[in-house]
């Protein structure tokens, strides 16, 4: 771990009971959902992490507890540091507090996570889908979302599929 990152991780450990993992010099801190906003605020204000460069999520599907991890990647431009915060969230329709009050970047990133994973961010000012059309049912990057969409048409099932296909009118 970078020398200058050590005291910062220590602060997170003491204040929020965060555990940390290191892989090839990258540091990930596990933070509980109820602490994430405070942790982000402290990192921004006291430790020069002024950029939320990535906000993403992972689905560990058959596993339900926690089913998702939400990942906040913070950069400090001043000190040239990177730190990841991971927040495990539970269950089918998980909720997290919004980070838009701390980092404006959250506005679009959280909409994307809601769109693709169905994780709701409470307090988000504009919680709509951002990539998919509004009518879409489900959240495509969830692992239980069906992979294929339409059954491929071969000679043996040509007519069956042809009948169900919504052809355009003039």
């Amino acid at each position: 771990m970078e020398k200058s990152l050590e005291p910062i991780v220590k602060v997170l450990q003491e204040k929020f009971g965060a555990t940390f993992e290191e892989f090839r010099g990258e540091v990930q801190c596990m933070v509980k959902p109820e602490h994430i906003i405070e942790a982000l605020t402290i990192l921004r204000d006291a430790h020069h992490f002024e950029l939320l460069s990535m906000l993403s999520a992972i689905d560990y599907f058959p596993q339900t507890s926690p089913r998702f991890h939400v990942i906040y990647q913070l950069n400090s431009l001043e000190k040239n540091l990177t730190l990841q915060l991971r927040v495990p969230v539970e269950g089918e329709s998980p909720k997290l507090p919004t980070s838009t009050g701390v980092f404006k970047t959250g506005l679009w990133r959280e909409r994307e996570i809601f769109d693709m994973f169905g994780i709701e961010f409470e307090g988000h000012p504009d919680p709509r889908r951002i990539l998919n059309p509004d009518e879409l049912e489900g959240h495509p990057l969830r692992r239980d979302f069906p992979l294929g969409y339409e059954e491929p048409q071969f000679s043996f099932n040509y007519e069956e599929i042809d009948l169900g296909k919504p052809y355009a009118k003039e």
Binding site: P140, P146, Y149
Partner: peptide, 20 residues
Amino acid sequence: SCGGVFNNYAIYQGVDEIVP
């Protein structure tokens, strides 16, 4: 023509679903 390799939720499976 038919969606090609993109058999998924995001792509129309052939533009003939929209225009003749």
